[in-house]
């Protein structure tokens, strides 16, 4: 079983220095749960950030050299096509650059492989991969698929292995020229980031303190149904029916 982890040219979110992205390191750890050989692949002008992942358990890092501003996708497809692994893992967003999270999807489409986002655990049995996907509100979904596949890793996946200098020294980096490919697209203007306030529920303009408090605590909507001193059984029935009507409680199973 061979797994390949895609490493972006990431920057540390605070210091801005080259450092592998946290989710990509988690991808390395996740790949180690089923593969004995975990390789890394980076396409871009500089592999310094990707090199940092060697100490976290990568066996080998392949660097496809490109000039700045080139599209990494053709080089990645070419690199994967020459010696296809069983599994390709990527982060949900790159650690620098546009951070669109599009690359794994485009790669899966170019390879014709299935893709599952936000994996938190992986298992393989008889060439069938079982992926547990993290959904919002703590929900989980199980996917079963035939290999090969592209998987992106959720931040809730197991933590990455810590850095080991010996492992980092042993890891080898293979440099190969990539396929130059210019990115065409509509012009995007860039400027320093300006944080914007997130919208919150707010009272009407010019409202007093009491109205603002009400807007912060009260939901809008029709007043509710009130049952005064019902027998407990009737109250229980009403509550269960209401919970089913709004869809938070599964309908009763008929046996």
């Amino acid at each position: 079983m061979k797994a390949l982890v895609l490493l972006s040219d990431a920057r540390h979110p605070v210091s801005g220095r080259p450092a592998p992205a946290a989710t990509e390191l988690q991808a390395v750890a996740l790949a180690h749960t089923l593969a004995d050989e975990v390789n890394g692949l980076h396409a871009g002008p500089d592999a310094e950030a990707a090199r940092g992942a060697l100490g976290h358990g990568l066996t080998r890092l392949e660097h496809r050299q490109l000039t700045a501003g080139d599209d990494p996708l053709p080089s990645l497809v070419a690199a994967i096509g020459t010696a296809p692994p069983d599994l390709v893992l990527a982060g949900p967003r790159a650690g620098a650059g546009a951070q669109t999270g599009l690359l794994p999807y485009c790669l899966a489409e170019a390879l014709g492989w299935p893709i599952v986002a936000d994996a938190v655990s992986l298992a393989v049995a008889d060439g069938v991969l079982e992926v547990i996907q993290a959904l919002p509100k703590g929900a989980r979904r199980r996917w079963r698929m035939r290999l090969p596949a592209v998987i992106t890793v959720h931040p809730a996946a197991p933590a990455a292995a810590s850095f080991a200098l010996g492992v980092a020294r042993k890891g080898q980096v293979v440099e190969t020229p990539g396929l130059p490919a210019r990115i065409e697209g509509p012009p995007v203007a860039e400027r320093p980031y300006r944080p914007r306030p997130r919208l919150i529920a707010s009272a009407a303009a010019g409202a007093g303190a009491a109205e603002r408090l009400k807007a912060a605590t009260q939901a809008t909507g029709p007043g509710g149904q009130v049952m005064v001193a019902p027998p407990p059984e009737a109250a229980a029935r009403a509550i269960l029916d209401h919970l089913r009507a709004i869809g938070v409680l599964k309908p009763a199973e008929r046996g």
């Binding site: 007043g223 509710g224 049952m227 019902p230 109250a235 009403a238």
Partner: peptide, 25 residues
């Protein structure tokens, strides 16, 4: 205030209601 906020409010002692809910479930 919680009764005013609620979509369904039961004005009763909570303990018999909890037991009845458990029995019903």
């Amino acid at each position: 205030a919680m009764v005013e906020r609620a979509g369904l409010a039961i004005i009763a002692d909570a303990h018999p209601v909890m037991s009845a809910l458990l029995v019903a479930l």
